[in-house]
């Protein structure tokens, strides 16, 4: 092997190792899997009060966004904000209890495609930016929320 090929082989090995060390599978259909190792991220969100404040602006963005407006405008926004805040709090290892529905049940009556799901993610990202939540902390939360696409998206 020449040095370049050797480097390529090492790179391949490094990436394969990275692939193999992917995070363990999420418990099936648990809408709020708690991960105590995310507690520092919970602090970066400003704890439960920070998450509650985030929800206010998140909902404003969801109503402003024509792609998501119709899902929330006529819904019980106060309830949705409370449930999302509980869910995020539990996921980030915070001292909360999630009292809401499972993701599949909560979205079963809605027609949601991938574009709608991604639109909500973008609105959440913008709201988190507004609250100066560090980008890497945002991604730690989104990494837990992203697999929920399998239950939230109802239009294949």
């Amino acid at each position: 092997m020449n040095p370049m090929q050797e480097l390529a082989a090492r790179l391949a090995l490094a990436i394969l190792t990275l692939l193999a060390s992917a995070s363990p599978a999420l418990a099936d259909e648990n809408p709020a899997p708690s991960d105590p190792s995310l507690l520092p991220v919970f602090e970066q969100f400003g704890g439960k009060p920070g998450i509650d404040a985030l929800m206010e602006d998140f909902m404003v963005k969801l109503i402003e966004d024509p792609r998501t407006r119709n899902y929330f405008a006529e819904a019980d926004q106060t309830h949705i904000k409370a449930m999302l805040a509980e869910q995020f709090c539990v996921i980030l290892g915070g001292p909360c209890t999630y009292t809401g529905k499972g993701m599949r049940e909560a979205h079963a009556k809605l027609v949601i495609n991938q574009g709608g799901f991604n639109a909500l993610v973008e609105d959440l990202q913008r709201a988190m930016d507004m609250h100066d939540i560090p980008f890497r902390a945002q991604n730690r939360l989104l990494a837990v929320l992203a697999p929920m696409h399998r239950e939230v998206i109802t239009e294949p």
Binding site: P66, R67, N70, Y71, A73, E74, K109, L110, V111, I112, N113, Q114, G115, G116, N118, A119, E155
Partner: peptide, 15 residues
């Protein structure tokens, strides 16, 4: 099933 909540059906998209 939810008259108000329908995704945008436009094919040319950027979501």
């Amino acid at each position: 099933p939810a008259e108000l909540a329908r995704p945008d059906d436009t094919l040319a998209g950027s979501d």
